[in-house]
Amino acid sequence: MAEFHLTTPIPPEKLEEIKVGDIVYITGIVITARDEAHLKALELHEEGKKPPVDFKGNGLFHCGPVMKKNEDGSWTVVAAGPTTSARMEIFQDKFIKAFHPGIIIGKGGMMERTAKACQEEKCIYGYFTGGAALLAADRIKEVKDVFWLEELGMPECLWVYQVENFGPLTVTIDVHGGNLTEDSKKNIMKNKEKILEEMK
């Protein structure tokens, strides 16, 4: 198990060195996007338009944070842990092909389509401990921007964060086709069959 400290935009060749089970920390730009923001960004892409922020080489964070607006109009991050990434499986591969993020940050892991796109387009998936929202908030140093807040609401809009040593993130999908959570799921299913067979 190796440890990597990556700065965004992450060069694709750097990702070649990283394998599942490794730990990474990110410094640079991380952008939140959940179900609605994925849909909207992909819609724009299909119309030949661009979303208001560039994901290329940056962190794409599956997260719907709790934010507090200060009196001067700036924002403070209250809590910002990862959301369940599996919901994004239905369009994550298209998103990777369209916008080329360097690392996807979420929890619960992702499946075959995403892992394939990660291998083809050079992207990794970093597993942040689910619910550890204050650990995450602590590593966010600045709220650089927010887009689509009015339209999509606080959890679903795009928050652009400047982060420092954001992690630890356990790599569960690498650019070599590895997928740790899928391996774990296969083990769980094997154990389930055994339990059901022996159940009285």
Partner: peptide, 16 residues
């Protein structure tokens, strides 16, 4: 660690 941070700082332990 996150649970302890939440308790000490009286902040939500999870963003959800």
């Amino acid at each position: 660690e996150n649970v302890e941070l939440a308790e000490t700082n009286i902040k939500p332990m999870c963003q959800d």
